[in-house]
Design a protein around this nucleic acid. Structure first.
Length: 390
DNA sequence: CGGATTTGACCCGCGC
DNA sequence: GCGCGGGTCAAATCCG
C-alpha cells in the first residue's frame, strides 16, 4: 500500500530551524489558510520523513498524548534552539471552522502563543468555549451566549434529529432506506475529535506514523489541484482518522490531520521498545493517547534504531488537544496556553516507560525534544541524500 | 482470495 | 430552500 509512496522522500533538513513554528489547534485550514500560515512566517520545521514501517513520525515527534507533545511544543524552554527565535503559536479552532473563518494567524512571536477562537459547537473541545478567559469545566454559563446558544441548538438538533430518524427508519420507504447509508449512524451524536495537523515536507503523501491506515475516501480540495485523502486506522474499534492533503501553495508540503485517539499500541512498533505505562492519573494507558498508547520510546534508543532511515518530517502545526479542563495544569479549568510550555506539561505528561517516563520528558523539555539529538544526524544524512537526489 | 484502494453517490452542515 | 463543500460509504476494482 504505502510501498509505492514510501521511499522517495526528499528531505530538506536544512530547514530544520524550528523557528516560527506555528501550531494550530483542531485543524489546519484548508488551502489558502495554511498558505497564509506559511507565508506569515509560520514555517514548519522539517524533520524527517521516513516511510519505512516502524519509523513513525509521531514517535519521532514524541507525541504521547493528545494533550500534547510537550517536547515539541516547548520551544520557549529551549536553551539551545537554533539562532532564530523559536516560536509557536497555537490557535484554537472551532471544530467546524470550515472556511469562513481563518484562524488569527498571529505573526510569529518569540513565545508560545495561544489564541482561542470562539466555539460554535460544543461537541468537542469544550475547553475552547470562551477559553480566552478562564472558565470552569461546568461553567456553561460562562460561554458567550451565542456560543452557548449555538451549542445548545446543535444539541437539540442532534437529538431531535436522531429521534426523528429513528422513527423514520421504521417508516421510511424501502427504496430510500436501502439506498441510504445506515441511518443508525446518525443516532450517534456526530462528534468531532480533537485534531492535530502536521505539515510535512515530503514527496510522499502518506507518511508513516507507525499505524496502519486504510484509505476510505478521496476528495478534491477546493482551490487546490491536489486531492485530500481520508484514512482510517485499520485496527478494529479504533476510530482514529487522518486526512492527508498536499498544500497547493507549497506542493512539497503535505498536511496530515489526525483525528481521534488510538486505543491500541502502534502495530508496527517493536514491542520491546514500547514504553507503556499508565499515567498516574489515568485509569488506562490506552485511554488518553491520541496517537497511540503510551508508545513513546526512549528517544535515544529509538533514534539509534531508526535514524538510519529518517527522512525529514516537517512538523507543522498541531493540536487541538482534548484538553483536560479540570486539570490544574490548564489554569484551573480553562485552557492555559502557557502551560503548554514547560513544567506543567512535564508534570502532567509523565509518559513513557517507567524508566524513561518523567525523566524522558524532562530531557525532552530540556533539549527541546528529540530534535536536538536527531537533527545533527539527520542533517548529515539529509545532505547526503540530497546529493544523491541531485 | 483477502485486503487495500478507487471512485461515484450520498449525507450533512452551513451560508446565502 | 438551495447549492456548495467537506466527509463518509460501499461496490467495484486492484494487487500481492
Amino acid at each position: 500500500m504505502d510501498g509505492r509512496e514510501t521511499g522517495e522522500l526528499k528531505t530538506t533538513i536544512d530547514q530544520i530551524s524550528m523557528a516560527n513554528s506555528t501550531v494550530f489547534s483542531d485543524e489546519i485550514i484548508p488551502g489558502s489558510s495554511f498558505a497564509s500560515f506559511a507565508s506569515s512566517g509560520g514555517s514548519i520545521f522539517d524533520m524527517s520523513d521516513n516511510n519505512q514501517r516502524g519509523s513513525g513520525f509521531m514517535d519521532l515527534l514524541g507525541f504521547q498524548d493528545f494533550n500534547m507533545p510537550p517536547s515539541l511544543f516547548d520551544f520557549s524552554s529551549s536553551q539551545t534552539t537554533s539562532s532564530s527565535s523559536s516560536s509557536m503559536m497555537m490557535v484554537m479552532m472551532p471544530p467546524h471552522h470550515q472556511q469562513q473563518q481563518q484562524p488569527p494567524l498571529a505573526s510569529p512571536t518569540s513565545t508560545p502563543t495561544a489564541v482561542a477562537l470562539p466555539e460554535r459547537e460544543s461537541t468537542t473541545s469544550e475547553v475552547l468555549n470562551g477559553s480566552t478567559a478562564p472558565t470552569t469545566p461546568n461553567s456553561s454559563s460562562i460561554s458567550s451566549s451565542s456560543n452557548e446558544a449555538a451549542a445548545n441548538k446543535n444539541e437539540d438538533q442532534t437529538t431531535t434529529k436522531a429521534q426523528d430518524e429513528e422513527a423514520d427508519e421504521q417508516n421510511q420507504d424501502p427504496e430510500k432506506t436501502q439506498k441510504q447509508l445506515k441511518p443508525k449512524k446518525k443516532n450517534q451524536k456526530r462528534q468531532r475529535e480533537p485534531r492535530f495537523a502536521f505539515m510535512t515536507k515530503s514527496e510522499v503523501d502518506n507518511l508513516d506514523d507507525g499505524y496502519r491506515w486504510r484509505k476510505y475516501g478521496q476528495k478534491a480540495v477546493k482551490n487546490s489541484p491536489y486531492p485530500r485523502s481520508y484514512y482510517r486506522c485499520t485496527t478494529a474499534a479504533c476510530g482514529v482518522k487522518k486526512r492527508v492533503e498536499r498544500s497547493s501553495d507549497d506542493p512539497s508540503t503535505v498536511v496530515t490531520t489526525y483525528e481521534g485517539q488510538h486505543i491500541h499500541p502502534s502495530p508496527i512498533m517493536p514491542r520491546g521498545t514500547m514504553g507503556i505505562a499508565p499515567l498516574p492519573d489515568q485509569p488506562s494507558a490506552f485511554s488518553s493517547s491520541p496517537f497511540g498508547v503510551q508508545q513513546l520510546l526512549p528517544h535515544h534508543h529509538y533514534q539509534q534504531q531508526q535514524q538510519q532511515q529518517q527522512p525529514q518530517y516537517s512538523y507543522i502545526y498541531s493540536s487541538a488537544p482534548s484538553l483536560n479542563i479540570s486539570s490544574p495544569a490548564y489554569g484551573g479549568g480553562a485552557f492555559n496556553p502557557s502551560s503548554f510550555s514547560t513544567g506543567l506539561l512535564q508534570e502532567r505528561y509523565n509518559f513513557g516507560s517507567p524508566s524513561s517516563s518523567s525523566s524522558a520528558v524532562s530531557n525532552l523539555l530540556r533539549d527541546h525534544g528529540l530534535l536536538q539529538d536527531i537533527v545533527p544526524q539527520i542533517r548529515k544524512e539529509a545532505k547526503e541524500e540530497d546529493h544523491l537526489h541531485q
